[in-house]
């Protein structure tokens, strides 16, 4: 549900978690990012960091500049003044990310986990089974059959949490327990109902189903897409995964290595939540890709 008023809880002496609701819901996440933008624009004295996520915002503040009570009063006022959600339109660029599904790198990573930590079902097979799909091709078709919304960044520099905008393409996946100690950079993962691209070689808990040779984070800012920022994606952007074959994968990999790879980004697209709602209503959700 989406709460009537934000709920606040302290995180030690200088953090506050503000919850706007308790579910994975696009409208709720849209609200989170709209409120985050308003808080940022209001320039409240004493706010040090804003960390929006699925349904909540964690704020870091300086208690010498603003008290817990005053800060939460101000943000509640901003929440009340947000107005109707339907009226909001956002510029939302679309990033096309090439993916080699069921690739050699993630397979090697799964094999290593089975050998060194504990045996488990091969991740794509597990997802086919749990989501009652016919086979891995359908998994690929569904995963690449929708645009994704960047709902949050975090956990690791450049890591974006993506949720599917097409309700017919929603999958679920359990998380690894215990987590992996390593995941190849560029791995496409799925955990809960969130998909992601691992920006670097890191530990991880999502099921791993493919690999992209196109980087999503570049601390050295070598490729053109990273001229302005080290991370490719921002909350409110959209992503589409495109299945590729090994030869295309190797072509892109070589161009990334040369520093000549240009990401496929459409920057003209606007996102209207009103039209999105209307489109969702028009869908026959029985139709499965």
């Amino acid at each position: 549900m989406i709460y009537d008023e934000p709920k606040y809880t302290p995180g030690g002496d200088r953090y506050i978690e503000m919850e706007l609701g308790n579910e994975l819901n696009f409208d709720l996440n849209f609200l989170v990012h709209s409120l985050t933008k308003n808080i940022r624009d209001s320039k409240i004295n004493g706010i040090l960091e804003l960390l929006p996520n699925m349904a909540s915002i964690v704020m870091a503040y300086n208690p010498d500049q603003i008290s817990f009570d005053d800060l939460t009063k101000e943000t509640t006022n901003l929440y009340r003044s947000l107005g109707s959600l339907e009226s909001i339109e956002l510029i939302s660029p679309v990033f096309t990310i090439p993916v080699l599904y069921f690739d050699h790198r993630t397979k090697e990573c799964w094999e290593d986990y089975c050998k060194t930590i504990q045996p488990k079902t091969y991740d794509p097979d597990l997802m086919v089974e749990l989501n009652k799909l016919s086979d891995k091709s359908q998994l690929k078709r569904i995963h690449s059959g929708t645009e994704y919304w960047v709902a949050a960044l975090g956990f690791y520099p450049g890591l974006a949490s993506l949720i599917s905008l097409d309700p017919r393409c929603r999958l679920t996946a359990p998380k690894y327990n215990p987590p992996r100690t390593w995941t190849p950079k560029g791995t496409v993962g799925y955990g809960g109902s969130v998909t992601c691209v691992y920006p670097d070689q890191t530990p991880g808990g999502y099921q791993i189903i493919g690999h992209t040779p196109a980087p999503v984070c570049d601390l050295k800012q070598r490729l053109p897409a990273f001229r302005k920022d080290v991370a490719l994606l921002r909350p409110g952007d959209r992503v589409r995964f495109v299945p590729i074959e090994l030869n295309e994968y190797e072509y892109i990999e070589a161009h990334v290595a040369e520093g000549t790879y240009s990401h496929n980004i459409a920057r003209y697209s606007k996102f209207s939540i009103k039209q999105y709602h209307a489109w969702i209503k028009s869908l026959d959700e029985q139709v499965i890709f």
Partner: peptide, 14 residues
Amino acid sequence: HPSNILDHGYPVGS
């Protein structure tokens, strides 16, 4: 798991 929650921000020190 009972310790799982919808992804959210982590305060430093939590």
